[in-house]
Write a protein that binds this DNA or RNA. Structure first.
Lengths: 216, 216, 216, 216
DNA sequence: AATGAATGAGAGTTCATTCAT
DNA sequence: AATGAATGAACTCTCATTCAT
């Protein structure tokens, strides 16, 4: 709002992303327009194009930022010192849910908008990739390693690690997606507690399965 | 694509829905425009408005048609004479997956677009509801009854039926969503077999849990 | 609203005009559309064209009807047995004001819409006139005769009768126009009483002038 | 028509208003469309929106400009050094007539179109008013002061100043409206001379009234 | 006498994007 | 580094009107 002070300008690119995110949060993705972002940061629409190739690149950056943040959430599992494959998986799921419900708009760009992926694909085709940390990949690996831990401990014998990991992921993704999209079959408003509760039910069942398998 | 033959014209309304769905599938929801649909069916844009109030109503109809079709898929559980709560739940899940992978474009309108719901809400506000079968509700009830069957048989003691139903739904929804959106962590193309396999893993674990619980 | 009974149908043309007028009254001239009229009388839009060449002819008929009605208002001067040129002129003015404020929408078609006149001009050019009573002309003649009465009595010596008549007409027309268009310089809502009061002021001044002239 | 020369471009906003006015004059208010204006000034329709919020704002500006210009015409009464309340009122009336007949298209926007007022009301509601001189108000005040001058000199005893002012205004407004709308009852084309003549008749009568009243 | 089905023409508006300066 | 000025290409939607049936 209004022209930023010189000191704020240092990283106009960051400023743009910040405002894009804010607009996203406050008004939904249909409202991210170049003009609005420009107005918000006190620059002209044309200025945006000095920092981004086009609108899709902005969404792509938000998409990346989202995955970075998701990874940050997941790392709390480690910083909190959670031990044991089961607890780590459970805690990882809770963190995933928290991230999604804390940042529904990020979640949308990450999983429900085609543009960022389109941009990515185009970049890759033109060989213009650059060296970035792939946080989406890191997040998946973190999950996969957790699941591998279970398998190593003898659980789910004969099950492919990717298949099992995919199942875990599908579950939490479905859970938060339905909540964010307001498709839950409860009359009340969706809450984090509800999500955690459903998650517990899932994990508890799995845990039992694990125990059951082990006790055989 | 040129004027359709007389035989094609019989139900212009159906033609419109068909092309809207096709455009959606081939080019994404941002590409469903009145003009494109009109061009595709060989009519003028104005003609669309003889059959639909506005664009949102088109999406709303696809959304409805989708839920009707999903219910049809689910009813195969019954027409195939599947017995026993576990098998019914499992079969219901497979049908859900089949529906979603057979009709990804319907699936998107049903779960990923705000417009149909907006239209619904507006209709309800203006009291313009009409007497329609609510297939979304019927589908959910079908799931819920299946889950209730399990609970009645003593499984998952202490778990709320809606919570359990939600968990099952979340799982399959997440599964197909990731596949449709091409977010699966496998290098290969997503297949129905993969989906079924992951689903089996989930159900197998649950089944074990059930047995474990029962054998306690 | 709804299909009229057979007995009502006898004069579809009249029905159309009636509903056009009603729409005009209730929603303003921007709302007179062929479709709305058709819906209101329970016929198809195409049916309108069996009775009228086009939309302008409908407005033209309303315009005519308006002038007929205005003449009816004016005739009350005679049916009320008002005598004396001054009183007749005064009463005629009050009737004009009443007509306009009772029927602002008619007044609009009569004096503020170009379409009816355009239609009239086109008709005249194509020699398609027909034998109609010209109520606009009759009304003007009535005014003119009243003014002529004053002149005959020796008032306004040297003044052309058309000039004087025009002046009287201009005054009342301006008066009601400003009120209908809500351009009056009073904070309160415009009332018939206000119009009558202003009119009285005008006529009183004129009357004085007449007396003054006579007493010279 | 065609791209304007560089020299013409200097003030595109003014160009737009100019052409809007011209279209209005030549083809009627139903013909003022964004597209036509754009074509006429050699710009794209989108360019209009760089200078105006929407179509109504264009009409609003013409409306404002009209009132500014009317005030300018009225100020000639002062710059010409006319003295005495009667002469000032008379001269003011002539100026009003001249303005209207010189600028019939402005007159229409000022008094016969709802849009500018609608725009004004919306602006006021949204608190977006800005500090503009209200020339409509100034014009009315000028008239009112003239009339007050007469009252102060003892004329029209017992008459409210707003009522008397309204009567004067109604008269000239009706006069020019009928002429602009071509509703004059003369076979000849309407002329400024005719208007002045009718006005003189009105003022002469009033003047007599004044004298008569004074001589009592 | 009446209409179902259709359209051409056009409305206002918004957007991402470009480019000379 | 930044922008003022502009546009092309859409968009949704509405209307008066036509014509085969």
């Amino acid at each position: 709002m209004g022209r930023p002070k010189d000191s704020d300008r240092r990283d106009v690119r960051a400023l743009i992303l910040e405002q894009a995110k804010k607009l996203f949060y406050e008004q939904g993705y249909g409202q991210i327009t170049i003009r609005k972002i420009a107005r918000e940061i006190g620059y002209s629409p044309a200025a945006i194009y000095l920092y981004f190739q086009n609108k899709d690149e902005i969404l792509y950056e938000l998409h990346n930022e989202g995955f970075r943040l998701l990874y940050e959430y997941k790392m709390r599992v480690i910083s909190d010192g959670v031990e044991g494959p089961e607890d780590r998986l459970n805690k990882g799921g809770l963190m995933y849910i928290n991230f999604a419900l804390d940042n529904p708009e990020y979640y949308e760009v990450m999983f429900n908008m085609p543009e960022p992926r389109d941009f990515m694909d185009r970049q890759q085709k033109s060989g213009d990739v650059g060296e970035r940390v792939d946080y989406a990949m890191l997040s998946y690996r973190f999950l996969r390693e957790g699941v591998q831990g279970l398998l190593d401990a003898g659980h789910f014998p004969g099950v492919d690690v990717d298949t099992a990991a995919f199942a875990f992921w599908a579950f939490v993704h479905g859970l938060v997606s339905l909540i964010i999209r307001k498709r839950i079959p409860y009359p009340q408003a969706p809450t984090r507690e509800l999500a955690h509760q459903v998650m517990e039910f899932f994990m508890f069942s799995m845990a039992q399965r694990i125990k059951a398998a082990v006790s055989d």
